[in-house]
């Protein structure tokens, strides 16, 4: 999962302090693994360097934790590209996909499209595996089947999420 893109996405709704960013991240995505402060600051520094964020203002008192970050146009484009880009179908994608969906919902982007894109990507791979399976030997078949079953599980999750998108949007924006 790309923490940089996630933080960028969170910034889209308005400038925030680093501490706020951490809290928002933990609240939505960090269920069992809260983000370390250090990781936030280092990530923000990288994003700042790449021109994807800018410092919006510094609270009196000094210290790095007093910086308020805002997303730049380049940052927005970067988030956009990330969300549009289907993930390479591989196991345990849920956290990334979930993050993407929530961010899309938060930033008012079409989350359904995101899911459908991902779904098409999954099915593309499944078709390829099915083709390979049809021509392959038994070992190939078994290996392909393993992958297929996992992909199927993901795809079912995508379906389910798509079906619950309205519910999720309500929960996220409330």
């Amino acid at each position: 999962m790309s923490i940089g893109h996630t933080l960028l996405g969170l910034l889209e709704s308005g400038p925030r302090h680093g501490y706020d960013l951490k809290r928002a991240f933990d609240e939505r995505f960090g269920h069992d693994r809260p983000l370390a402060y250090g990781q936030v600051y280092s990530t923000m520094a990288r994003l700042l360097k790449n021109g994807l964020v800018e410092v919006d203002g510094i609270e009196p008192g000094g210290g790095p934790e007093r910086k308020r970050y805002a997303i730049t146009d380049a940052g927005i484009t970067d988030v956009d590209a990330w969300l549009r880009q289907p993930e390479k179908p591989e196991p345990y994608l849920q956290t990334t996909l979930y993050t993407k969906v929530v961010l899309a919902l938060l930033t008012g982007r079409p989350a359904a499209d995101l899911l459908d894109t991902q779904r098409a990507e999954h099915l593309r791979l499944m078709r390829e595996l099915t083709r390979r399976k049809k021509s392959g030997d038994l070992a190939d078949q078994l290996i392909c089947d393993h992958a297929l079953f996992h992909l199927e599980a993901d795809l079912r999750w995508l379906e389910l999420t798509a079906a619950r998108l309205d519910q999720l949007a309500k929960a996220v924006t409330s």
Binding site: L123, R127, E152, R156
Partner: peptide, 16 residues
């Protein structure tokens, strides 16, 4: 409604 069955297709349409 089975993805593994749908994987035998060339193209997919989703109805919602």
């Amino acid at each position: 409604h089975e993805p593994r069955v749908a994987a035998y297709s060339d193209r997919e349409i989703v109805v919602r």
